[in-house]
Amino acid sequence: MSEQLRFTKEHEWLLVKGDVIRIGISDYAQNELGDIVFVDLPSVGDTVEEGEGIAALESVKAVSDVYSPVSGEVVAVNEELEDSPELVNESPLDQGWIVEIKVDGVAQTGDLMNKQEYEAFLKEV
């Protein structure tokens, strides 16, 4: 499962399913943030530009933005997170996914890291 994921240097992950990209945050990221108590999700139908804030993760201590690694339209949000924000901590790569974005054209994931590359990148952080 995690073999299919691609990671950004900002610690988001992407799962490409045709022209729909599922986005979440890495295990490293959830650990850095600590207990997530609220996830501020976008609405289905919102359009986002690459690099724009798409969701906000609130821990007891602070808020952190999740930036969209792609441009497109929000086609799904993980509504489970509204009542169970802790899923981001407990299952960051699976049940704690955040949004799905339908991209314009073909998703460009060439400059993203695979799992091994991301783990190597974390050692330098």
Partner: peptide
């Protein structure tokens, strides 16, 4: 992420 109120 981590750009806002980043933990030192």
């Amino acid at each position: 992420m981590f750009d806002r109120q980043r933990t030192k």
